[in-house]
Write a protein that binds this DNA or RNA. Structure first.
Lengths: 346, 346
DNA sequence: TTGAAAGCGGTACCAT
DNA sequence: ATGGTACCGCTTTCAA
């Protein structure tokens, strides 16, 4: 397909060996196992290495040691800024171990009619961190295959009942926090803006909300559930739908900050005041949450930490240590700002 | 450093050859140059390949063909969601060519005391797309070295006077658009919120604003220039600084949407109404811009397209075609929403 | 059209 | 501590 090739021949280990007056074996050792070489030899070799700015050809090395020193992160959609923090966290976890990060999104994988498993099988990556919980069953089967086992961890999202290791935020507890906050403020009429149908986060957050509501003796009629994606525009649209109903909710639980911001925007357009008329709470605590108007009350999940921990889990799994726990649930907290207030009297 | 290795031995080309009753050469050809193999042989080989889900070991292949089929994207900061659209665009440009995307940020590169050049020299990537215009001079020297020439393109940001190929938005024209819009609305008192000191975008946008202002017979006194980063919190802070001044601006040009949103947030806290008291315009048109309160008037740059074009430029440079132009400047447009209005009488 | 075999650039075993 | 060398898995002449 491609026809180019690296033009110039980079300097190789043989050149270094010749220049330093030692064997290639010694150069290799000086570089990878400095302890196994006499200090003088090492110094000698390193001098030549520095002088010529020699770099080990990573393919030759990987071919020999059967290791890529790279991890693949699979994101549902690269264009979605929500994932950037998690990716940054993954990078944080990988960097100390000297591993590289490969990134793709599910969309372009499909475009190439490839599965992320290809990368593992083709030895391009040692492991996979998957941020997409909605992979097709066929791909999940591949991922569960023995030759790939122990090289995959899910982060943030995950597929159900597959037994993969997963690192996630405590989505249920988060929604419970939101409900309790609102109930404490006197709210009784709730609505919920959900994420996409079939998404685990959608389900967990909904169930978390329903459970907490039930505990307060409240419930969520189907007519009070709207949404269908995590995106702003759907929050905007849902606000209209909700306000058009005969009995209006006084509190809206949103499954993402984007949804919440869109919702508030929609409410404003309709002349509904937040938080005087209705309170809204988000989920995620994205950077903008503190600066939207009004500043958003939301559930903070530490996405960077989530990414880092996922990377660390994968790394220890790769080095053969069995994971202490398959399911790691990170705590969340509520950040009360000004999009929530006491329920309007009446 | 790492001690793990891929546990199982994946099936190799020799196995396929044996199973199909042909030589490895034929298997290789059947896979890479189907035309050079008889239809029967090809079918025979492909059957075995499919059956065992065989994948070419990419390292062995890359070692042999001296090509990585991967491109490295260097982002200043992976955690910054601003870049995700560009990355997605790069992916768009790479996918049709079958190339993989490696991603790192400048921060973790430094942490590893590596330069992106290492990836190129170590043959891990065929080319580099750099979104960081503020690389240290030493690294830029490396990038300019002959053995790396033609394998680098800058996108969005770029270093000055180095002659690297760059793909960017028309930052000056964008600011000019903003100024003209505001001048048309009767504004005479401008302020500018800039990005970080030393950043090219900061400079281009400032110069664009100043030039357009000059053309309208207006100017921007130093006291009316604030900012110092593209981030929300600095927009928030700058709003305070600006409003504390004896003579207040009626229009604030922001070098990013983040800055604009922070600024509006800060103004609101001070009781200053947008757009009745002051108009503010952003730059970028991020997804949230349309949904902030008030919806943000801003300069739209097509970040996805920018990424895609950068990838395409790199690809053609890698395949030896000289670039038609070193500097590619993409058009921007103004999106008028509701954060701008006629200057208050007075 | 097909096969034999020589590497690609390292690493690590086995001697010394 | 060091060197010789087989080999990692694939691609690509070169011959047949």
């Amino acid at each position: 397909m491609q026809t180019y090739r690296r033009d110039i021949m980079a300097i190789g280990i043989k050149d270094i060996a010749r220049l330093a007056g030692v064997s290639t074996a010694t150069v290799s050792r000086a570089l990878s196992h400095p302890g196994r070489v006499s200090p003088e030899t090492r110094a000698q070799v390193m001098a030549v290495v520095e002088e010529h700015d020699y770099r080990v050809n990573s393919f030759a090395r990987s071919l020999r040691v059967r290791r890529a020193d790279a991890v693949l992160a699979l994101v549902p959609n690269l264009g979605n800024p929500f994932f950037s923090e998690i990716i940054a966290g993954i990078q944080d976890g990988l960097t100390p171990a000297g591993l590289d990060l490969l990134v793709t999104d599910s969309l372009s994988q499909q475009a190439r009619r490839q599965s992320p498993v290809t990368h593992l099988q083709a030895a391009r990556a040692d492991g996979l961190i998957c941020l997409d919980g909605a992979l097709p069953a066929g791909i999940l089967d591949d991922l569960a295959a023995s030759d790939v086992a122990g090289r995959v961890v899910f982060a943030c999202e995950w597929p159900d009942g597959r037994g993969f290791p997963v690192v996630r935020s405590d989505n249920r507890a988060g929604m419970a926090l939101a409900v309790q906050h609102l109930v404490g403020l006197g709210h009784r009429d709730f609505a919920l803006l959900t994420g996409p149908e079939g998404n685990v986060l959608t389900r967990e957050r909904r169930e978390g909300a329903e459970a907490a509501l039930a505990q307060a003796g409240l419930s969520l009629p189907p007519s009070r559930i709207a949404g269908g994606s995590f995106e702003i525009r759907d929050g905007f649209r849902a606000a209209g739908d909700l306000m058009r109903m005969p009995s209006r909710p006084t509190a809206i639980l949103c499954s993402s900050d984007q949804l919440a911001i869109g919702c508030i925007s929609g409410l404003s357009e309709l002349g509904v005041r937040v938080p005087q008329d209705v309170s809204v709470v988000g989920f995620d605590d994205i950077a903008l949450a503190a600066y939207s108007r009004p500043p958003l009350t939301t559930i903070r999940q530490d996405r960077r930490r989530l990414g880092r921990i996922a990377a660390e889990r994968l790394l220890s799994s790769l080095s053969g240590k069995p994971l202490a726990e398959t399911l790691t649930t990170l705590p969340v907290e509520i950040v009360v700002r000004r999009s929530t207030a006491a329920a309007p009297a009446g």
